[in-house]
Protein backbone atom coordinates (compact mmCIF):
# COMPACT_ATOMS: atom_id res chain seq x y z
CA UNK A 1 0.00 0.00 0.00
CA UNK A 2 1.13 3.48 -0.78
CA UNK A 3 -0.30 6.92 -0.27
CA UNK A 4 -1.04 8.55 -3.61
CA UNK A 5 -1.65 12.25 -4.03
CA UNK A 6 -2.86 13.94 -7.20
CA UNK A 7 -5.07 16.79 -8.32
CA UNK A 8 -8.45 15.63 -9.62
CA UNK A 9 -10.83 18.17 -11.16
CA UNK A 10 -8.90 20.98 -9.52
CA UNK A 11 -8.98 19.49 -6.02
CA UNK A 12 -5.98 17.88 -4.33
CA UNK A 13 -6.86 14.34 -3.27
CA UNK A 14 -5.00 11.53 -1.49
CA UNK A 15 -5.74 7.88 -1.03
CA UNK A 16 -4.21 4.58 0.02
CA UNK A 17 -3.93 1.95 -2.68
CA UNK A 18 -1.80 -0.96 -3.89
CA UNK A 19 1.01 -0.17 -6.33
CA UNK A 20 -0.89 -2.33 -8.85
CA UNK A 21 -4.11 -0.31 -8.55
CA UNK A 22 -5.21 1.09 -11.88
CA UNK A 23 -5.97 4.79 -12.13
CA UNK A 24 -9.58 4.04 -13.12
CA UNK A 25 -10.14 2.04 -9.93
CA UNK A 26 -8.53 4.75 -7.82
CA UNK A 27 -10.86 7.31 -9.40
CA UNK A 28 -13.98 5.17 -9.04
CA UNK A 29 -13.39 3.43 -5.73
CA UNK A 30 -11.15 5.72 -3.68
CA UNK A 31 -12.66 8.98 -4.92
CA UNK A 32 -16.20 7.77 -5.68
CA UNK A 33 -16.15 9.41 -9.11
CA UNK A 34 -18.00 6.75 -11.07
CA UNK A 35 -18.52 8.71 -14.28
CA UNK A 36 -15.31 7.16 -15.64
CA UNK A 37 -16.25 3.69 -16.87
CA UNK A 38 -14.55 0.32 -17.27
CA UNK A 39 -15.87 -1.11 -20.52
CA UNK A 40 -13.59 -3.83 -21.83
CA UNK A 41 -10.67 -4.64 -19.53
CA UNK A 42 -8.51 -5.14 -22.63
CA UNK A 43 -7.50 -1.50 -23.17
CA UNK A 44 -9.49 -1.15 -26.37
CA UNK A 45 -12.82 0.55 -25.70
CA UNK A 46 -11.90 4.01 -24.35
CA UNK A 47 -14.81 4.26 -21.86
CA UNK A 48 -12.17 5.00 -19.20
CA UNK A 49 -10.55 8.00 -20.94
CA UNK A 50 -9.56 10.85 -18.62
CA UNK A 51 -7.09 13.70 -19.07
CA UNK A 52 -3.71 13.48 -17.37
CA UNK A 53 -1.77 16.75 -17.41
CA UNK A 54 -4.01 17.93 -20.24
CA UNK A 55 -3.81 14.85 -22.48
CA UNK A 56 -6.29 12.03 -23.01
CA UNK A 57 -5.17 8.69 -21.55
CA UNK A 58 -6.80 5.35 -20.81
CA UNK A 59 -7.13 5.21 -17.05
CA UNK A 60 -7.51 1.41 -17.27
CA UNK A 61 -3.99 1.14 -18.70
CA UNK A 62 -2.31 3.53 -16.28
CA UNK A 63 -1.43 2.83 -12.68
CA UNK A 64 -2.64 5.23 -10.02
CA UNK A 65 1.01 5.39 -8.92
CA UNK A 66 2.04 6.62 -12.38
CA UNK A 67 -0.48 9.44 -12.06
CA UNK A 68 0.75 10.53 -8.62
CA UNK A 69 1.55 14.24 -8.66
CA UNK A 70 -0.29 14.87 -11.91
CA UNK A 71 -3.44 16.80 -12.77
CA UNK A 72 -6.39 14.61 -13.70
CA UNK A 73 -9.65 15.75 -15.24
CA UNK A 74 -12.58 13.34 -15.33
CA UNK A 75 -16.01 13.72 -16.90
CA UNK A 76 -17.23 15.17 -13.57
CA UNK A 77 -14.76 18.04 -13.94
CA UNK A 78 -16.00 19.41 -17.27
CA UNK A 79 -19.21 21.24 -16.44
CA UNK A 80 -18.63 24.57 -14.74
CA UNK A 81 -21.10 26.57 -12.64
CA UNK A 82 -23.95 24.18 -13.39
CA UNK A 83 -23.56 24.66 -17.17
CA UNK A 84 -22.75 21.77 -19.44
CA UNK A 85 -19.38 21.91 -21.20
CA UNK A 86 -19.92 22.76 -24.91
CA UNK A 87 -19.04 19.17 -25.86
CA UNK A 88 -21.56 17.77 -23.38
CA UNK A 89 -24.18 20.21 -24.67
CA UNK A 90 -23.44 19.19 -28.27
CA UNK A 91 -23.81 15.48 -27.41
CA UNK A 92 -27.19 16.29 -25.87
CA UNK A 93 -28.35 18.50 -28.76
CA UNK A 94 -27.25 16.02 -31.44
CA UNK A 95 -28.40 12.89 -29.60
CA UNK A 96 -24.80 11.62 -29.58
CA UNK A 97 -25.60 8.75 -27.26
CA UNK A 98 -28.04 5.94 -26.68
CA UNK A 99 -27.19 3.76 -23.67
CA UNK A 100 -24.57 6.28 -22.58
CA UNK A 101 -21.96 3.82 -21.35
CA UNK A 102 -19.21 4.98 -23.72
CA UNK A 103 -20.21 8.65 -23.45
CA UNK A 104 -17.81 9.79 -20.69
CA UNK A 105 -14.87 8.46 -22.71
CA UNK A 106 -16.26 9.88 -25.94
CA UNK A 107 -16.71 13.32 -24.41
CA UNK A 108 -13.22 13.36 -22.85
CA UNK A 109 -11.76 12.21 -26.16
CA UNK A 110 -13.69 14.90 -28.03
CA UNK A 111 -12.46 17.65 -25.71
CA UNK A 112 -8.85 16.49 -26.24
CA UNK A 113 -9.39 16.21 -30.01
CA UNK A 114 -10.82 19.74 -30.28
CA UNK A 115 -7.95 21.10 -28.15
CA UNK A 116 -5.38 19.59 -30.54
CA UNK A 117 -7.10 20.36 -33.84
CA UNK A 118 -8.86 23.60 -32.97
CA UNK A 119 -11.45 24.56 -35.57
CA UNK A 120 -9.68 22.46 -38.23
CA UNK A 121 -11.71 19.30 -37.60
CA UNK A 122 -13.49 17.57 -40.46
CA UNK A 123 -15.53 14.39 -40.50
CA UNK A 124 -12.68 12.12 -41.66
CA UNK A 125 -10.38 13.46 -38.93
CA UNK A 126 -13.00 12.98 -36.23
CA UNK A 127 -13.62 9.39 -37.33
CA UNK A 128 -9.87 8.65 -37.39
CA UNK A 129 -9.43 10.26 -33.98
CA UNK A 130 -12.18 8.02 -32.55
CA UNK A 131 -10.00 4.96 -33.25
CA UNK A 132 -9.62 4.30 -29.51
CA UNK A 133 -13.28 4.68 -28.52
CA UNK A 134 -15.90 2.04 -29.15
CA UNK A 135 -19.67 2.65 -29.16
CA UNK A 136 -22.01 -0.29 -29.66
CA UNK A 137 -25.29 1.65 -30.00
CA UNK A 138 -25.11 4.77 -32.12
CA UNK A 139 -23.19 3.71 -35.18
CA UNK A 140 -21.07 6.82 -34.46
CA UNK A 141 -22.95 9.18 -36.81
CA UNK A 142 -24.41 11.41 -34.12
CA UNK A 143 -21.21 11.28 -32.07
CA UNK A 144 -19.30 12.63 -35.08
CA UNK A 145 -22.00 15.26 -35.63
CA UNK A 146 -21.85 16.32 -31.98
CA UNK A 147 -18.05 16.66 -32.00
CA UNK A 148 -18.09 18.72 -35.21
CA UNK A 149 -20.82 20.96 -33.77
CA UNK A 150 -18.86 21.41 -30.54
CA UNK A 151 -15.68 22.22 -32.48
CA UNK A 152 -17.51 24.98 -34.37
CA UNK A 153 -19.09 26.26 -31.15
CA UNK A 154 -15.76 26.28 -29.28
CA UNK A 155 -13.78 27.63 -32.25
CA UNK A 156 -16.39 30.34 -32.68
CA UNK A 157 -16.25 31.21 -29.02
CA UNK A 158 -12.47 31.48 -29.23
CA UNK A 159 -12.59 33.81 -32.24
CA UNK A 160 -15.21 35.96 -30.48
CA UNK A 161 -13.01 36.18 -27.38
CA UNK A 162 -10.03 37.31 -29.44
Amino acid sequence: MAKITMTVNGRQVSGQCDDRTLLVHFIRENLGLTGTHVGCDTSQCGACVVHMDGMSVKSCSTLAAQAAGSEITTIEGLAANGELHPVQAAFKANHGLQCGFCTPGMVMTAVDMIRRHGGQLDEATVRAELEGNICRCTGYHNIVKAILAAAVEMGGARVAAE
Binding site: R20, L22, D41, T42, S43, C60, S61, T62, L63, Q66
Partner: peptide
Protein backbone atom coordinates in the same frame (compact mmCIF):
# COMPACT_ATOMS: atom_id res chain seq x y z
CA UNK B 1 7.89 0.87 -17.41
CA UNK B 2 7.81 3.49 -20.18
CA UNK B 3 4.31 4.40 -21.41
CA UNK B 4 3.04 1.00 -20.32
CA UNK B 5 0.77 0.63 -23.34
CA UNK B 6 1.88 -2.97 -23.84
CA UNK B 7 3.18 -3.84 -20.39
CA UNK B 8 0.16 -2.80 -18.27
CA UNK B 9 -2.42 -4.63 -20.46
CA UNK B 10 -0.12 -7.66 -20.42
CA UNK B 11 0.09 -7.51 -16.62
CA UNK B 12 -3.70 -7.13 -16.40
CA UNK B 13 -4.04 -10.39 -18.33
CA UNK B 14 -1.54 -11.95 -15.91
CA UNK B 15 0.77 -12.75 -18.80
CA UNK B 16 3.55 -10.78 -17.09
CA UNK B 17 4.20 -10.48 -13.38
CA UNK B 18 7.23 -8.29 -12.68
CA UNK B 19 7.99 -7.92 -8.96
CA UNK B 20 8.96 -4.30 -9.55
CA UNK B 21 8.24 -1.57 -12.08
CA UNK B 22 10.72 1.24 -12.73
CA UNK B 23 8.81 4.18 -14.21
CA UNK B 24 10.82 6.09 -16.83
CA UNK B 25 8.31 8.85 -17.63
Amino acid sequence: LAGGMTLIPTMKQRLAAPTDLVDLR
